[in-house]
Amino acid sequence: MRPIHLLSLIPICGVLVAPFFLNQVKPFILGMPFMLGWYSLMLVATSIIMACIYFSDKASGAHASDAAEGERK
């Protein structure tokens, strides 16, 4: 496992651990109660983080060997 894969722990902690510390109604985020806004933010952050991990692996050539194995010569 590469160190960049540790970024995937951010959304997990954001969804599972943060509500214990951030459980409040005010302030509002875009008109939503704070926790609903927080979960919406984590949804977007998860997508961005997973895209960064994917493109980082792709740039390092980790997926090149998988594609080469699937091809028959």
Rank of each mutant, 00 (worst) to 15 (best):
W38C: 08
V15E: 00
P3V: 15
S56W: 01
R72V: 15
M42T: 03
D57N: 09
L41Y: 09
L41C: 07
M50R: 10
K26P: 03
M32C: 03
R72E: 14
M50E: 12
G61T: 04
A18K: 05
L16V: 14
K73E: 12
A68R: 12
P27A: 07
L7F: 05
L22I: 15
G14F: 01
S65R: 14
V44C: 10
K26S: 15
I53S: 00
M32K: 10
C13F: 13
F34P: 00
L16W: 09
R2Q: 12
L22N: 14
L6P: 01
L36I: 12
P27K: 03
M1F: 12
M42N: 10
A64T: 08
S65C: 09
H5A: 10
Q24Y: 13
L7G: 00
L16T: 13
F21T: 13
A62S: 05
Q24C: 14
G31V: 10
D57S: 03
A67V: 09
K58H: 05
A62K: 07
I29N: 08
F55L: 07
Y54W: 08
I12N: 03
D66I: 12
L6N: 03
L41K: 05
V25E: 10
P27W: 03
S65Q: 12
I4G: 02
L16I: 14
F20K: 12
D57I: 00
L43K: 05
G70H: 14
K58L: 07
K58I: 02
D57Q: 02
S60R: 09
C52W: 04
